[in-house]
Design a binder for these strands. Structure first.
Lengths: 164, 164
DNA sequence: GGTCGTTAGTTGCATATACAACCAATATCA
DNA sequence: TGATATTGGTTGTATATGCAACTAACGACC
């Protein structure tokens, strides 16, 4: 597969932009997980399926907030899962909501992917300084919250960042 | 635009998956930057343009490695920049290579976007605990390298992770 | 100089991502 | 109750992302 030769594993250059820096890390980590989890379930789908499995969501809105996903992205991503028969529609009182729940196949694929997911986690943990893992997990969440807070702060209804 | 109401800025739930955790942060941070930088230049394009501006790349391969981008992604992203007249082809001895260089317009748009980029950086920095910024910048790079190393370690030609 | 493996990029395909604009249903309130 | 605002989702459009498969050009070797 011509994965880069060992000599090219050299250090990555610093990126001054935190966003670029973060996105690069996300891309590379995603590939690692994707590789371990196999071709059946992509990392994004795995997250979505897992989240859906945890909270028996009534609607997509809550799910989107949990994952920091735009509602339109979520809507389409769910459609892929549905097409694969991993989730199915679930009624709700509020007829606006279109919640989904895992099917048996959904739970099966999740179970089948779990070992690979575990391997990915362990490999990354092993590639990090000891004790770093726990720090990272909370750091990422904190960064996400920071971005969210900053976003809300300026995106509020009364704070106009002129549109025209 | 109905940006989430302040009350919904509450803490995000923990995600057990480092990948999901990282990707969520990347999405939210990307949105923050996108918002500040304006509609002319998306964060991904900004990174690419900046990288291209730094190193006067002869080819795409080096650029891809720097940004952790697949060559096919890079190829297409560059096309978008070219269509916008921000970059132009640059010859090279090796006729396989298709390197690009910034045009005057490319440098102009970069300059025009810089203030917004600065604002995004500062806002995120302000939303983080003091001193955290520097830690994050190196952490992200280290994680990227860790993922890359782990990837190479297993993706090698001789190490088969059975396919069937 | 021809053969062969490697390297550089592109194209087909599929998913992920989000904004603007839209529709549907609910909630609010006079 | 009826007008209005809000909330929940979908669709059109465009970019981002990567895998498999391909072509083109280079390099090494005999």
């Amino acid at each position: 597969m011509s994965r880069k030769s060992p000599s090219e594993t050299g250090p990555l250059p610093d990126l001054q932009c935190l966003c670029a820096n973060l996105r690069r890390a996300a891309r590379l980590v995603t590939q690692l997980y994707s590789q371990e989890m196999g071709p059946w379930l992509e990392p994004a789908q795995y997250s979505l399926l897992t989240a859906l499995n945890m909270i028996n969501t009534s609607g997509q809105a809550a799910l989107g907030r949990i994952l920091g996903l735009d509602k339109t992205t979520l809507s389409r991503n769910l459609k892929v899962l549905q097409r694969n028969r991993w989730i199915e529609l679930a009624e709700s009182k509020d007829r606006r909501e279109r919640g989904y729940r895992l099917t048996a196949e959904g739970k099966a694929i999740l179970a089948r992917t779990n070992p690979g997911w575990q391997r990915a986690q362990e490999r990354l943990r092993a590639a990090l300084p000891p004790g770093e893992w726990e720090t990272l997990m909370s750091t990422f969440r904190r960064v996400a919250e920071a971005a969210l807070a900053a976003d809300v702060a300026s995106g509020g209804p009364s704070v106009g960042r002129e549109k025209a």
